[in-house]
Computed example of a mutant assay.
Amino acid sequence: MDAIDLLSGVLTKTGDLVDGVTADQLGLPTPCDEYDVETLRNHLVGWLLVFAAGSQERRHEGDPTAYVCGADPAGEFRAAAADLVAGWRTHGFDREVRVVGGRSPAESVFNMALMEYMAHGWDLAVATGQPVPFTEQEAARTLARAEATLPPQYRGEGMPFGDIVPVAEDAPAVSRFAGFLGRRAAADDATG
């Protein structure tokens, strides 16, 4: 499995989680303190549009934090995911990619997208009681990319990522990944 196939698999599984959300779950809390399920779903699609535009060498217009899904959130997610994957397949990694606020090395942007959609897929699964769908191989490879990408200065109070939550070394890779990204429920997920 190459890197783009890895991303495609994670996006497909996260899209299935988006599709599995029911109307009565929209107000449920998620492992991300600032998001309920509906806000997380909007975040997932809004930022996917940004990542897709960058991968396709387009400039994204609009504020991803203000994005609100329409009547078919899963359809919107899947269309943007297909656009993102096609952009990576067409334009590759030997370039800089615009996300927000400037251009960054393609590999870093790719890793950010991969981390974003596995982490928030995990969040959505935990919040809605759906099984966490990511395979051991997907989670292990995403964790390795996260460890290589996420510097300590982006962790802690007021930062995009929480402090690392200790998870047993022999826990499933998806639980270790969630713990690495600061998800408190990861330790419980690994043991129970």
Rank of each mutant, 00 (worst) to 15 (best):
Thr90Leu: 11
Leu114Ser: 08
Pro151Lys: 12
Ser175Lys: 08
Thr149Asp: 06
Gln130Ala: 09
Ala148Gln: 09
Arg176Ser: 04
Glu107Gly: 10
Arg184Asp: 05
Arg183Ile: 07
Pro105His: 07
Gly92Asp: 00
Ser104Met: 11
Asp163His: 11
Met118Trp: 00
Ala139Gln: 04
Phe161Asp: 09
Leu143Trp: 03
Ala187Thr: 01
Glu136Asn: 05
Gly70Phe: 14
Gly70Lys: 14
Pro131His: 00
Val68Phe: 08
Leu181Met: 15
Val97Trp: 07
Phe180Tyr: 15
Gly70Glu: 14
Gly179Asn: 11
Ser175Met: 09
Val99Leu: 15
Gly121Cys: 02
Ala74Asp: 12
Arg176Val: 02
His91Val: 07
Pro152Ile: 05
Phe93Asp: 11
Thr90Gln: 12
Gly92Ala: 05
Pro172Thr: 01
Tyr117Thr: 07
Ala71Pro: 06
Met118Asp: 02
Gly75Gln: 10
Asp94Gln: 11
Arg89Pro: 06
Asp123Ser: 02
Thr142Lys: 09
Arg183Ser: 04
Arg183Gln: 03
Ala171Lys: 09
Phe110Arg: 12
Thr90Glu: 05
Arg184Ile: 07
Pro172Leu: 00
Asp72Met: 04
Pro160Val: 03
Arg145Gly: 14
Ala106Leu: 10
Val132Asp: 03
Tyr154Ile: 04
Gly102Asn: 04
Gly129Leu: 00
Gly101Leu: 07
Gly158Thr: 03
Cys69Arg: 13
Asp83Lys: 02
Val100Tyr: 07
Ser108Leu: 15
Pro160Tyr: 01
Ala144Gln: 06
Arg184Gly: 07
Leu84Gly: 09
Asp170Ala: 12
Pro105Tyr: 08
Ala173Trp: 02
Ala185Tyr: 10
Arg95Phe: 13
Glu147Asp: 09
Phe93Ala: 13
Arg184Met: 04
Arg95Asp: 11
Asp123Trp: 01
Pro105Gly: 06
Asp83Thr: 09
Ala86Thr: 13
Leu84Val: 06
Val174Trp: 10
Asp123Pro: 00
Pro160Ile: 01
Ala171Asp: 05
Val99Thr: 15
Pro105Met: 10
Asp123Leu: 01
Gly179Tyr: 11
Val85Phe: 01
Ala125Cys: 05
Ala173Lys: 01
Glu169Gly: 15
Cys69Ile: 13
Gly102Thr: 02
Val167Asp: 06
Ala186Cys: 08
Cys69Ser: 14
Ala82Asp: 15
Phe180His: 14
Gly179Ile: 12
Ala148Met: 01
Ala71Val: 12
Ala82Met: 05
Gly162Asn: 03
Arg176Phe: 04
Ala140Leu: 01
Glu76Lys: 10
Gly162Trp: 00
Leu143Asn: 12
Thr142Arg: 10
Gly121Trp: 00
Phe161Gln: 05
Ala139Lys: 04
Glu147Gly: 08
Pro73Val: 12
Glu169Leu: 09
Ala139Glu: 00
Pro160Gly: 03
Ala140Thr: 02
Gly75Cys: 10
Met112Ser: 13
Ala74Met: 11
Gly182Cys: 11
Gly101Met: 06
Trp122Ala: 04
Glu76Ser: 07
Ala80Tyr: 09
Ala185Gln: 15
Tyr67Pro: 09
Ala171Leu: 06
Leu114Arg: 06
Leu114Cys: 04
Glu116Pro: 11
Ala66Pro: 01
Ala171Cys: 08
Ala140Cys: 04
Tyr117Ala: 11
Thr142Ala: 14
Ala81Pro: 13
Gly158Trp: 06
Glu157Trp: 03
Asp83Gln: 03
